[in-house]
Design a protein around this nucleic acid. Structure first.
Lengths: 173, 173
DNA sequence: GTAGACTATTTTAGACTTGAAATAATTGAG
DNA sequence: CTCAATTATTTCAAGTCTAAAATAGTCTAC
C-alpha cells in the first residue's frame, strides 16, 4: 500500500501467543468465543492504529470521531458522539477539544437546546477525512481478504445475534 | 448475581446507536463486519469491566494479567505476558508493578536468563483470582446465552479464520 | 575474547479512558 | 409559576496504553 517510510521498531513481542493460548480444549465454548473475539478486535485495531499513524499521522480515536461526524452532515451532539463511539462523555470532551483546536471540527450551539453542543466537520476536516477513507477501507478489505462473501455474511449475522444478546444482558446486569 | 450495592450513575448515553448506525446498507461488507465486531467487543468488555468493579473492586487489565499467570503455573516472563495480553512491554511493567505492590504477584529472577523476570501468582493472588473465575465465566455465559452450541461453534470457527487472516496481514503491512 | 547484533525490560512523555462529582439548562408536577 | 427531577456537558484524579529511547544481558562470528 505504501512503502513504510521509517521502519518501526518492534515494540511488541512476536504474536505467537495470545489470550487463548492456554485455554484447555475442553474449556467453555463461550469463553473461547469471547477470547477469540477480543483477539481479533485487538489484532485489527492494532494494525489500523499503526497504519493511521504511519500514513496519516493520526490516531484511531480521532479517526473514529471524524468518521461519525462525516456520516452525520447535520452534526451530532456530544451525547450522540459518546453513544456512537461507546466511550464516556468526558472522553469525547477531550477528544473533541483537540480536534476543534486543530481546526478539523466545528463546535456550534444547538439550535433548540442550550445545554447541547452541535459538532460538525469543518471544510478542512472533511478534506482530511476524505483523504483517509479509501485507504482505511482498503486496509480492512485486505485484513478480511481470505474470507469469502458467504463467510463474511454469516459472520455478520452471528455477530448481530451476539450484539443483540449482549445488549439485552446490559440492561439487567 | 449480586444486588447492585450502589446504583451507578449513568455515565454513558443509552446505547441505542453505535459505530454501525450510519453505515448505508450497501456499504462494504468487510467494513460492516469490522464495525460490528468492534461493537460486540466493546459491549462485552464494558460489561465485564463494570461487573469486575462492582463485584470485586478490580479492573479488567488486572484480571487479565492474573488470568494469564493462573494458566501458567511455572510463571511467565514480561515478554510472554506482553505478547499474550497484546499490549506493550511498558504497559505490562506498570500493571505488574501495581500487582506486585498489592501482593498478588511475585517477581522472581529468571533461572537461566538474567535479562528476564519471571512473574508468578502469589498464594494471595491465587486465592483472589479463584474467587473471581466462576463469576467471570458465568457473566460470559450469560452474555452469549442466546446463541446455540452450533452457532457458538460456527462463530468460533469463523473468528479463527479471521484471526489467521489478520495475523498473516500483520507481517506485511 | 570481543565487537556488533539481538533480545528483555524499563523509562519517559503524551494520549486516551474511566468513574464520579460538579455545573448548567430543561421539563414536568403541582 | 416554581421547585424537584432529569438531561447534557465538563471537570478532575487516577489508571491504562502507546511509541520511542535508554539500559542491560546474551549470542555469534570472527
Amino acid at each position: 500500500m505504501s512503502e513504510a517510510r521509517t521502519k518501526p521498531v518492534a515494540l511488541r513481542a512476536a504474536p505467537r501467543a495470545d489470550r487463548e493460548s492456554a485455554v484447555a480444549s475442553d474449556d467453555k465454548l463461550e469463553l473461547k468465543v469471547w477470547l477469540r473475539l477480543l483477539t481479533c478486535a485487538n489484532l485489527i485495531e492494532g494494525q489500523v492504529r499503526n497504519l493511521l499513524r504511519e500514513n496519516f499521522a493520526t490516531t484511531l480515536p480521532r479517526f473514529d470521531l471524524l468518521a461519525q461526524l462525516d456520516r452525520a452532515p447535520d452534526g451530532l451532539t456530544m451525547g450522540e458522539l459518546s453513544s456512537r463511539l461507546m466511550v464516556t462523555n468526558g472522553n469525547v470532551t477531550a477528544l473533541a477539544d483537540a480536534l476543534v483546536r486543530e481546526g478539523l471540527v466545528l463546535r456550534e450551539a444547538h439550535p433548540s437546546d442550550r445545554r447541547s453542543l452541535c459538532l460538525r466537520l469543518s471544510a478542512e476536516g472533511k478534506r482530511v477525512f476524505d483523504a483517509m477513507t479509501p485507504a482505511h477501507e482498503e486496509w480492512i478489505d485486505q485484513m478480511m481478504g481470505e474470507l469469502s462473501r458467504d463467510e463474511l455474511a454469516r459472520l455478520l449475522d452471528l455477530l448481530g445475534k451476539l450484539k443483540r444478546a449482549a445488549r439485552r444482558n446490559e440492561r439487567v446486569s
